[in-house]
């Protein structure tokens, strides 16, 4: 299975994401410059962490003008797994591919630590983790406070769109995200954004392997092992 990792000016987790993908899935990963619209027939797409376009105006705001985002939106519509990690999550929200927005951390601190998150719902990027699994994953962000208006929040929760939550509730929340939300998916469940970095938790030597299940989920998803309705019933 081939992954395309989109590289924006200012991305800095692109090589890590590609390396972790190869390690976790045994598949290929290619870096795709943001000016290209050719994803090389990739089966899965990763928007990596970093500071795309210098975080100018708002984190992720300028990326929708990158030609690659047209291809990413088309792949999302086609049901292919799309994962936004950290800055990639911000980009997906700004591009309208995911609901909500990521605001400045409640404490204003840049939080760089390992957190615990619980898998809340199956998606293209969580289905291999098992429901209720608690993962230890690194975070590194200053603008990770997920927020969306109350009525949209209810709709998101009602459709099981929250895929990861910080645990324990409240005390485990590093940034003030509403409802302890650490990751969400689109209605098709193939587009996922999360603040933690699974690509930084793909080798025991580097502190943990809890991110491997996130990346391997795309394999199970693409193989049709779990479709949204079945997965949610399970």
């Amino acid at each position: 299975m081939r992954a395309a990792v989109i590289v924006f000016p200012g991305s800095n987790c692109d090589e890590d994401a590609a390396a972790a993908w190869r390690l976790a899935t045994g598949g290929e990963a290619a870096l795709v410059w943001h000016e290209s619209t050719d994803l090389g027939g990739a089966d899965a797409i990763i928007l990596p962490g970093g500071f795309a376009h210098g975080d100018y105006l708002r984190c992720g705001a300028m990326c929708r003008f990158s030609p690659a985002m047209r291809a990413v939106a088309a792949a999302a519509r086609a049901g292919r797994p799309v994962l936004g990690i950290c800055n990639g999550f911000q980009i997906l929200c700004e591009a309208g591919l995911l609901p909500g927005a990521l605001a400045r951390n409640a404490g204003l601190d840049f939080r760089c630590e390992t957190v615990s998150v619980r898998v809340e719902a199956p998606s293209a990027w969580t289905v291999a983790c098992g429901p209720g699994a608690v993962l230890r994953l690194p975070i590194a962000h200053g603008d990770g406070r997920y927020w969306l208006p109350p009525e949209e929040r209810e709709a998101l929760i009602a459709r099981d769109g929250v895929v990861l939550r910080y645990v324990p509730a409240g005390a485990g929340n590093p940034n003030g995200s509403v409802d302890d939300i650490a990751g969400v998916c689109n209605p098709g469940r193939n587009v996922v954004g999360l603040m933690p970095h699974p690509e930084r938790a793909a080798e025991r030597l580097l502190g943990g392997e809890d991110g491997i299940g996130i990346l391997r989920s795309a394999l199970a998803w693409a193989a049709g092992a779990a479709r949204p309705e079945e997965a949610l019933r399970a």
């Binding site: 605001a103 400045r104 951390n105 409640a106 404490g107 204003l108 406070r145 927020w147 003030g176």
Partner: peptide, 13 residues
């Protein structure tokens, strides 16, 4: 501006 009522940690600081 952030919407009225939205947490503004920068303003608080």
């Amino acid at each position: 501006h952030l919407k009225p009522g939205a947490l503004d940690p920068q303003g608080q600081a």
